[in-house]
Structure formats: structure tokens, C-alpha cells
Amino acid sequence: MNDEQLLRYGRQILLDGVDIAGQQRLADSRILILGLGGLGSPAALYLAGAGVGELVLVDDDVVEISNLQRQIAHTTAEAGAAKAESAARRIAALNPEVTTRPVTRRLDEAGLAAEVAGVDLVLDCSDNFPTRFALNRACAAAGRPLVSGAAIRLEGQVAVFDHRTGGPCYRCLYREEGAEAERCSEAGVLGPAVGIVGSWQAAEALKLLLGVGTPLTGRLLMLDLAAGDCRTLTLRADPACPVCGGHGDA
């Protein structure tokens, strides 16, 4: 590690459990972030700032002016640009040592499986149930940890599903039948709500890569910014889950 890297990551290297060896682990790691909107924006920027070696940025949407109230990876000048490419440019400006690979097409099941198999960890920053369920299946098949986040209005959720150890998984938490996510365009969202959730997702990802702290594995963190309240629920694996089979109950 050279002097410039020691200067850039010095405050992080000082942490117990990180040191130079941990910083090198981050540099050698590869993370997939699906969704570069309100959740993916802060998550991507913090992971890039922390020195994660490669970020695969997946989003088939483009930047709109209505996004900028909360999607902080993008700027007014990027309106009309692909979100994945806009985020990649912002990351390059923040930390040119980080490699990014923007994916601007919608991935089908086979595409998700191929991308997930090539990374160490996955962040679900999407905004719809079909994508979340498909990503959970891909992570389960590849044995990759999945850090899931969601936010709407002044509320948020974060959970970690470590598919290296079995269930519970995302499918244990939500049934596919009849699942329908509320949209920010209909219900509204406070910008800092997605910022907090996305930042927490980044923190959980770093904890998993570094092996420090206690990740939210098998737990659901629930945030209520209106009430200033935060609570954690323990999740139980569903014995009938078609994805994880209910194995590895937390």
C-alpha cells in the first residue's frame, strides 16, 4: 500500500479489525449494486470511498430531474444519462482507484445469475418485488451474501441474507404471491430516509467483507424517522421456502 493510499484510507485503517490487511481485502473485493437510485447512490459512494476494488453497477433507468431530491450520485447535468454510467462517473471523481462496470440493460434470470456469480457480495437497492425475488434466487444459487434495503415515506428497512449459511432468505420474509411494492412516485419519500438506508447497506457490506462487528444476518432493521425509532426483528427461516429450504435458521 503506497503513501497516497495510506493517506486516503488512514482513518479507516485505524479501526479495530481493519488495519492494512483489511484495507487490502476491500481492494481485492467486488460488489454488485442493483439499482443506482435513492438507495444505491449513497451505498455506491460510501463503498467507493472505502476503497472497494470493483463495483458492478446495474440499472437500466435514466436520470430524471425528479430523482435529484434523493439520488445523490447524480447531478442536474446528468439528466437523461443512464444512471449506471452517471454513478460510475461520480465514483471516478471521488476515488479513481475504484474500478466500475456499468450495466445499463435489464438483466433476466440468466443475466443476474452470471453477474452475481462473479462478485463477492450483492446489494439489493431495487424498488420492486420481482427484481428482489429474482436477485435473492441468484444469490442463493451462487452462495453470495445479499444486503437488502427498502425505504418509503419516512420509513426504511435493512436486512442481511447470508446465502453462504442458508436461510432465512428474502423469500422467507415475503411471499411472492400478491407481493406489490409501494412506489415513491405515489407515496412520497424523504430524501434522508433513502440516504440512511443506503448508507446502512454500505456499512453492512463492509462489515461482511472485513469480518468486523455483528452483521444484520437473519435480522430485519426497521427505521421510523417520523417517530425517531429504530428496532430489530429476528427472522425465522420458512421450512417450506422454495429458495433456501428453511436451512440455517438464525
Rank of each mutant, 00 (worst) to 15 (best):
A84P: 10
D16F: 00
S86I: 09
A142C: 12
L123F: 04
R11N: 07
V243H: 00
F161N: 02
G178W: 06
C244V: 10
L121E: 06
A179D: 12
V197F: 08
L223Y: 14
N136V: 12
L206V: 14
A27M: 02
A181H: 05
C172G: 07
C244L: 09
L233I: 14
A81W: 06
L26C: 03
F133K: 01
D60W: 05
R171F: 03
G149I: 04
D120S: 05
S148A: 12
V116C: 05
E64G: 14
R171Y: 04
P130G: 09
V212I: 15
I20R: 13
L235S: 13
C125D: 13
V98K: 12
G195K: 04
G178E: 12
A205S: 13
S29W: 02
E4D: 13
L190K: 00
R30V: 13
T131E: 01
T232I: 15
L146I: 10
A138K: 09
G246K: 08
L34G: 13
A141P: 02
C241W: 04
D229L: 06
R236N: 15
C169I: 11
S86N: 09
I31E: 05
V243W: 00
S148N: 08
L135C: 10
A84C: 09
D3Y: 04
P145H: 13
F161I: 05
V158S: 00
N95M: 10
L34T: 14
G156S: 03
V52K: 01
A93N: 05
I196P: 01
L94W: 02
L7A: 15
V56P: 01
R25W: 02
R231K: 15
G10S: 15
I72C: 10
L6P: 00
A21E: 15
E85D: 11
T217F: 01
G17M: 01
E109A: 15
C172T: 08
C139K: 12
G35M: 09
C125Q: 12
G198W: 07
S86L: 10
A181K: 06
E115L: 10
Y174M: 08
G166F: 11
R175C: 02
P168L: 08
A142N: 12
V197Y: 07
L15G: 06
D124A: 14
Y170N: 04
A87R: 11
A110L: 03
A114P: 03
C244Q: 06
N136W: 06
V158A: 01
A151C: 01
D249G: 10
D120C: 07
R164A: 11
S86H: 11
Q69S: 11
G211F: 12
D3S: 15
V212D: 07
G143F: 08
A114Y: 03
P102Y: 12
V160L: 10
I91M: 06
S29G: 02
A114C: 05
